[in-house]
Design a protein around this nucleic acid. Structure first.
Lengths: 333, 333
DNA sequence: TTGAAAGCGCTAACAT
DNA sequence: ATGTTAGCGCTTTCAA
């Protein structure tokens, strides 16, 4: 039906092997032959059947990218950078959305295994051990976000929250803030815990009075209620959101209480460049470089795939503080 | 290397044909046999090689989803709904990002052709004719957004902006607004043109004084400058953003000029449920049901793929007005 | 109810 | 420098 390599070979008057080699640049060919093949390809509008190719070479040109929620603005940035890198290496990114559902994550991995992908980036807040096991057993390269483990076929990206949080607190302290609230995330999330710990450690070090942490579930609504609780119990002049959605919730909460940000309440959140456009310009943020994460994830996979042994590495990714419209604390009544 | 269908067959003491049929439920098998096969599959941890399967059946289980910008919050919603539908039908969605680049769109299509996908959803603001031609020639089902054409292997989704815009204007008029600005999009975009036209038509019909349109490029920054220009030339009490990013830009502009929204300036934009969480609660919006678009896109493809003839259809998708914190125009100085 | 075997389109030895 | 050909793992017709 569709035009196949045989048609091209016939048209160009060469063997299929030659066509294959020309297309993949996998051995020398006389310029004239090469030319004829390329012409035939163009004339017939031929495009490689990648299923066949993948079957023959035993691995797919697809790379898996498992995300917990593509609708969370955190992830499209990662996706985009990952895809761009993949494209450069003639690979495709197959993005799978798990909706924070462990079972669905497992299913996704199985589907990727069936697709014979050589590598998978797992960018979810939690990773069930069965997932990394399944991948490692099959020698499929995998890179995780803040998993904290490195092994054969297992690489890890560590976001350096600590440094960004320290910068943010130093900034607030230098403006004169002392009572700073923290809206923490779910206790079971390692990244949530690290952020809280970094906040508390740095706050102590700087001699500040940390308020809270009050726990939220890392959603806008959760941030709203946590902030509400925090403002009722303490009188912070600044609030640090445990993640970006939480900080947005805090903004809404401040708005509803008639507290102007940042004049009467400074809010700091996590963020990245694109997302900043959609929110109020008053939000000072710790930037999590999502593009870097996406790019690094690909590179980690690529490294394991192309280096024979598949030995994984640790990839630190720095955060950065973005200051906007900061003010000193308002005088208290 | 990996466990193949042969291994399963051997383990279960049956032929590969039987294994295949059991797995695909494509013919009756004695329950006992079936049982043995399934056990063997479980024990060996077998998963189908989809490359081989796709090669054999001549079509991939992948569906293409071409987006102009995955980082624009408009698209992840669509992606998510599309993927969910695909999953229900045991298909994968391969999401490709074109960054509004025509050449890259063309490349994406070629890659999808190579992957033997049976269908492609093209959700970009512009579609080069060469793309729909290439797909149609190869009998690959395609669905477009606001392309305005239906044919064999070509379906179309039409977003009913007109109705949503009319509702919005009626709403503003009923509050007492009369001078309403419009921030239009690029002239070459059909959807941009339709929105502007709908605005002007309805405004005339309601006896309002339309201000503008001032043209923007459908970005936040573009909306900011367009709004700035509009406010300098006219004295509108309300502004209608040509798309969601534009409306956000208008909000920022109003903020920077010290105009409170909506007390001193009502801003209406396009939006959808999720996105609304990230923006100010003051923005009344015409909701573009992105989930509906994603779901409908899949269904359109599926219909063409499974109905023998591949005849495309027209799929209208309604918009909806979401009113928030609306106010009457402030008394003018 | 099951099995044998011929492809699907491509790659990569091995030949020439 | 190029051609021949044996698979890759699966589906599916045809036989049994």
């Amino acid at each position: 039906m569709a035009v196949s390599i045989k048609d091209v070979a016939a048209r160009a008057g060469v063997s299929t092997a030659t066509v294959s080699h020309v297309l993949n640049q996998t051995r020398n060919t006389k310029p004239a032959t090469r030319q004829r093949v390329l012409e035939a390809v163009a004339e017939l509008g031929y495009s490689q059947n990648l299923s066949a190719r993948n079957l023959a070479v035993g691995r797919s040109s697809l790379l898996g990218l498992i995300l917990s929620d593509i609708r969370n603005p955190f992830f499209p940035e990662i996706t985009s950078a990952f895809q761009d890198q993949a494209l450069l290496h003639h690979m495709e990114a197959l993005v799978l959305n798990t909706n924070y559902d462990t079972q669905r994550t497992l299913d996704s991995v199985k589907r990727l295994v069936g697709l014979q992908v050589p590598g998978v980036a797992v960018v979810t807040s939690q990773v069930d051990p069965s997932i990394s096991e399944m991948l490692q057993e099959r020698k499929i390269a995998a890179v995780y976000l803040d998993l904290g483990r490195v092994d054969r076929y297992i690489a890890n990206i560590t976001v350096q929250y600590e440094q960004g949080i320290a910068e943010a607190l130093e900034h607030l302290a230098s403006l004169g803030h002392r009572r700073i609230g923290f809206l923490g995330g779910p206790a079971h999330l390692p990244s949530s815990d690290r952020r809280k710990q970094a906040f508390l450690d740095t706050a102590r070090q700087l001699g500040l009075e940390p308020c809270g942490p009050v726990t939220s579930d890392f959603t806008v609504k959760g941030g709203y209620y946590a902030c509400s609780k925090l403002l009722s119990s303490f009188r912070p002049t600044a609030i640090f959101g445990g993640n970006d959605l939480t900080a947005i919730g805090a903004l809404h909460c401040a708005f509803d209480r008639g507290l102007r940000v940042p004049e009467q309440l400074s809010v700091v959140g996590f963020d990245d460049i694109t997302f900043a456009e959609y929110t109020q310009p008053a939000l000072t943020t710790v930037l999590i470089p999502r593009q870097d994460i996406g790019r690094t994830a690909f590179q980690a996979l690529w490294h394991m795939i192309s280096s024979g042994d598949g030995e994984g590495r640790e990839y630190p990714v720095a955060t950065r503080l973005i200051v906007r419209q900061s003010t000193a604390p308002a005088p208290q009544p």
